[in-house]
Amino acid sequence: MRFSLFLGCFIPVRLPHIEKVARSVLGEIGVELQDIGGFTCCPEPVGFHINDRLTATAIAARNIALAEEQGNDIITLCNGCTYVLKQVNEELKRDSELRDKVNEVLSETDHEYRGTIDVKHFAQVLNEDIGLDRLAKKVERPLSGLSVAGHTGCHILSPPDVMKFDDPYDPVVLDNMVAALGAEPADFSMKTICCGWTLTNYGERQSANQLVGAKLQAMEIAGSDCISVICPQCFYQFDTGQMMATRSLKLDLKLPVLFYLQLLGLSMGYSLEDVHYGMHRVKSQGFEEKVGRILA
């Protein structure tokens, strides 16, 4: 199966090791990725999309049009990109008047939105196009005994009628993905609360520290060895944000976070070094030793 790879901004600029792992792991499980040099920022949902909707809709429509020209559906690696591109795609397919308006704007470029493709988060591709049963067959070293706190993140859950991913108040899809690797999903409180990045960015840093600290403590109480996420913003909040929160709150706690594709890589025979765990801010000797025993 072939997709146009929409990298977004966060991963290529700030977390390039996730891009490296994604290209490698997705390729190995049969997802062919085609690059498009002309893709731009989706554009970012909270900073751009809701503040100047017509421009943002046109930029998103242009991105979708590029994939249409390539003849592929889009695969994303980020909840925020999925949130914008899926909503715009649905809106433009439904509203012909808006589509005409957007195409009038796009006439300034060489592109036209036609509404012929779908946008999918990689987690949706794993669940819907590959299937967790087939994914489980790619597992060479089941992660037995590893307790994983799955934080799904906000923007892939809501609005649920557009995102069509999981129940925003009782999400289980990421847990099922974790279980497919032989690991144990941890059941923790505060599971559906946002990672808190707008608190960090827009002037409430100490409140963000407290929110991240409370979520980490809930994960620890549930016996988690690590966290798994499917969104780079959540990754950053639980990695760099965890370092800042534990320092500020004087919490003696270290829960490494792994992007789901890193966890998948480990189960397929990659080492911690192969998934570039060394580039993370939060590392834990206990976690490393446990993974070492599981993978031995």
Binding site: P45, V46, I50, Y83, C154, H155, L157, S158, P159, P168, Y169, T192, C194, W197, T198, L199, Y202, G203, E204
Partner: peptide, 15 residues
Amino acid sequence: NSNIWLCVSCHKCEE
């Protein structure tokens, strides 16, 4: 109101 920028558009309030 500068607090409006804290909203992350998670839709929890709407739901």
